[in-house]
Design a protein around this nucleic acid. Structure first.
Lengths: 240, 240
DNA sequence: CGTTACGTTGATAGGAATCAATGAGGGTGG
DNA sequence: CCACCCTCATTGATTCCTATCAACGTAACG
């Protein structure tokens, strides 16, 4: 499960200004000169295969990373021994903030599928383009707000938590221009349980119930097709 | 409950270099020149009385704030109507990150007791002392890690969640040079329930049980005296 | 084709929510 | 100063949801 090595492959090094993510990533409100400077502070050459680890809990903080394609999961090791999945990150999202305050990462990040990332050299960035720090703070802020959502969700019923997760994923895929009515969960029932604070059994029951009620279709266990988006929304909107 | 007005009183304007918080706040690793520049980017004149609101959910983002003395709570309005307390902040901690990503605050912040705060003008700061942004990112990072803790706590039993909360508060008071064996909870049972994802009844039962077992003493409902710190620690350390 | 991890389904038990009643404190107005 | 109200807190009885335990099915892989 723990492929400790970090794979570094050269690939076509797409510069920030040609990157398809555009405004989803950092280059919001930046002029052309600054985008060129951004390029100088970023390495575009990180490729991770499924299961490979970007950084481990307790390892010293080195850089922030932007997800360019694919997806990664962020998890923490528990005292009991097992891992707990805390979230997944999609293209355009920036990870690594967990390591800033103590200079050591509080979480482990690994690839859920073949993924490419950009490494952001914080000190270079500060030198090259100091006006960008507000942008970075915004991304950090988004991370906070994301956990805020998890926070308010965790007093809901198992079914609602599942629905909220599906709707959140759907929305994030849509923002990135992917189909938002069908996607791969990328997580096992057990990992999903970590994330939503449920047991794998309860996750399974919940998903199958949504399927029985004609709201979703489950294909190959992990691949979800949303059939009745409004119906899902109704499950979490009505009755507080 | 909602004293909408924000009180602005002049008080003796202590500069950052004379502030008792020192390293707990921003001025870590800063030289004298930069601390003077920091002073120019910060207003030291904010005073809030109990219940007064610093900023409201959905209000436009203006500044970050550092808690100088006292304490504030951060909460979000739920669809159902009520508020949910998400955390409390003590001197040296920086708040406002919740508003950065969308330019509008995702939370409401109000004073739990008479408190003084510093307003941090982000744009001035960027102009005056660009090297500071890593410091700010660290504070944002700390906010993230804080929610991380909440996250991993929420699958524990009611009693353990209560104990963890008490120990966390004790540690934070200690870091700030206060007595760490007795302090005011500042929150009602209901607010504590929001924070720990429990009902007020369960909070009450839990605290009274800790009292019966001789681990804590409850004085005036909100004022807690920790009698057996090791005993509390044992409750959360043993058996996963 | 066995081994292993993952997933499903059922039965049961336990912990916290809920419902309900009472008590305690604080503020207000008569 | 007291009666009243309102919020907060406590305590008990009951219900309900989800974890737990257990068995079995399924898919991937060497």
């Amino acid at each position: 499960m723990n492929t400790a090595a970090k794979s570094l492959f050269r690939e076509l090094s797409i510069s920030c200004k040609d990157c398809g993510l555009g405004e989803l990533c950092i280059p919001r409100d930046l002029n052309q000169v600054d985008i060129d400077r951004l390029d100088d502070s970023v390495s575009h050459t990180l490729l991770l295969h499924t299961g490979e680890i970007l950084y481990k809990q307790d390892s010293p903080f080195e850089s922030l990373y932007a997800v360019k394609s694919g997806s990664v999961k962020i998890s923490t090791s528990q005292e009991g021994g097992g891992d707990t999945v805390m979230g997944i990150y999609l293209p355009g999202e920036i990870i690594g903030f967990d390591g800033l305050s103590s200079e050591h990462h509080q979480c482990t990040v690994s690839a859920l599928e073949t993924s490419s990332l950009c490494e952001i050299f914080l000190d270079d960035l500060q030198k090259n383009i100091p006006t960008i720090f507000k942008q970075l703070l915004k991304h950090a802020s988004k991370s906070i707000n994301q956990t805020t959502d998890v926070f308010s969700a965790n007093k809901l019923s198992a079914e609602k938590r599942l629905v909220l997760f599906l709707l959140d994923l759907s929305k994030r895929y849509q923002q990135r221009g992917y189909v938002h009515t069908e996607f791969n969960l990328l997580l096992t029932r057990s990992e999903l349980g970590d994330l939503l604070d449920l047991t794998p059994e309860t996750v399974s029951r919940g998903l199958r119930k949504l399927e029985r009620n004609g709201l979703i279709a489950i294909q190959n266990l992990r691949y979800i097709k949303i059939i009745d988006l409004d119906g899902l929304g109704a499950l979490v909107d009505i009755e507080k």
